[in-house]
Design a protein around this nucleic acid. Structure first.
Length: 262
DNA sequence: ATGACATAGGTGCTATGA
């Protein structure tokens, strides 16, 4: 079974690219971030015609997340319970699947983590509060769901390998010790970075700035992740960043990341 | 360099992203 995550930076603009990508990469689940549209504008009919059910949590102009799945999901959760948030950043659901030869559901959590702008700003403080709330909620989710996959746009580089210029960008947004400590706290719940379970090329990134030919110059960040719980770790068969869509006309600035579970 | 490029909303420009 394959699960993918992709920050599409406007689903309205990127729908044709999403449909084209799914036609070539018929994953079991595609988790989207930055829909940038309200729920009434979500293209559920077009996706269903392409063979995908949708669970979505939109917002006008900003944010917005969705789960596109071959099979319908259950127990959909929108945002973090108990954490008042005007922004649509999390959607989670239970997905029927067959892993390790057993018919066992898994819990799929899709997050569009807060950007945070810069250390010292109100948005950075919001990012820290949001990360603490997410970690606390994930701890309880992991008690309820042994098999859990957390994917999304994390907006944090885990370590220096995840940045094209770790020295020059030290202590700037996506690179601060505070952000990395919060991400480590999430990993310490028993979640494993599927990408780093395998040998990967140097300068493997999932986002590149539109400006200054960032993609062509390999100046990017790895900020999009697929994490699996302890019970799923032995089932992870691979994890790749698909840079092909970044070569499209009018691309998203993010690339899809795909994890395979056997 | 509070820049660059892209998107939404709206129609000139601001807010936001990473």
């Amino acid at each position: 079974m394959k699960i993918a995550t992709w920050n599409v930076n406007s689903l309205s603009v990127r729908l044709p690219q999403v449909l084209a990508w799914l036609a070539v990469n018929p994953v079991d689940a595609l988790c989207l971030q930055e829909l940038k549209l309200s729920d009434e504008k979500f293209p559920a009919a077009e996706l269903l015609a392409a063979g995908y059910h949708s669970a979505f949590f939109g917002q006008k102009t900003y944010n917005g997340v969705a789960l596109l799945t071959r099979l319908p999901v259950t127990d959909v959760q929108k945002n973090i319970p108990g954490f008042a948030d005007e922004q649509s950043r999390v959607i989670a659901a239970t997905l029927p699947c067959s892993i390790g030869g057993l018919e066992q559901n898994l819990r799929l959590v899709n997050g569009y983590f807060v950007n945070g702008q810069a250390p010292g700003t109100e948005k950075f403080e919001y990012k820290m509060r949001w990360l603490v709330a997410l970690r606390d909620w994930l701890a309880s989710e992991l008690v309820a769901h042994e098999r859990l996959v957390l994917v999304g746009d994390f907006n944090i580089t885990f370590d220096d390998r995840d940045s094209w210029d770790p020295e020059g960008l030290r202590d700037t947004i996506h690179h601060t010790l505070q952000e990395r400590e919060q991400l480590q706290a999430i990993f310490q719940l028993g979640l494993h970075d599927a990408f780093r379970m395998f040998e990967q090329a140097q300068r493997s990134f999932s986002w590149w700035d539109y400006r200054d030919f960032g993609f062509r110059r390999k100046r990017g960040l790895r900020i999009d992740y697929c994490l699996v719980s302890e019970a799923l770790k032995a089932q992870v068969a691979g994890c790749v960043i698909d840079t092909e869509p970044r070569k499209n006309e009018r691309p998203s600035d993010h690339a899809p990341v795909v994890v395979e579970l056997l």
